[in-house]
Nucleic acid binder design. Structure first.
Length: 112
DNA sequence: TCCATGACCGCAA
DNA sequence: CTTGCGGCCATGG
C-alpha cells in the first residue's frame, strides 16, 4: 500500500536546513517551493515543532515583511535576533535589515 | 469524532 | 491608501 504520507513538516525542515548562513527566507516562499501555495500557515506551524530539532535554523525564517514574527516562540524573545546577528544578518526593531539582499530564494539559488 | 486555532499570504472592496 | 476574509495542513481538547 502506498504509505505516501507527505509530511510537509519534514519537507519544510529540509528546505530550512539548506538556508545558507547570513540569509533568510519567508514562509510563503518555502510553501510555494514545496507546492503549498497558500499553506504558509502550516510552514510556520512546522517551525513551532522545529523547536525540538537542532538542525532547523528557524531564526532564518521570517514573514513576508521580514518581521521576526516567531521571535516570541524562541527560548527568549530576543534569541531569534541574536541568532540572526550571529549569522551576519542585522536586525532592527524586530525587523531584518536589507531583507531583500539577505533574502534567499530556493527556486533561484537552490534550483539547480 | 467534531470544533477551533496557528511563527502566514494573497486578493478584493 | 487601508481593512477584512478565505485557504492550506496539522495538532489539541
Amino acid at each position: 500500500m502506498s504509505n505516501e504520507k507527505p509530511n510537509y513538516f519534514d519537507l519544510v525542515y529540509q528546505v530550512v536546513r539548506e538556508i545558507p548562513k547570513g540569509r533568510v527566507t519567508s514562509y510563503g516562499t518555502i510553501a510555494n517551493y514545496l507546492g503549498l501555495k497558500s499553506g504558509a500557515r502550516m510552514v510556520g506551524y512546522a517551525m513551532n515543532a522545529a523547536h525540538t530539532m537542532s538542525d532547523v535554523p528557524a531564526q532564518r525564517v521570517v514573514n513576508r515583511q521580514g518581521l521576526l514574527t516567531g521571535k516570541a516562540h524562541f527560548e527568549t524573545p530576543t534569541k531569534m535576533q541574536e541568532l540572526l546577528e550571529a549569522d551576519g544578518v542585522k536586525v532592527e526593531n524586530d525587523r531584518v535589515l536589507d531583507f531583500e539582499k539577505v533574502f534567499w530564494d530556493p527556486e533561484k539559488e537552490l534550483d539547480l
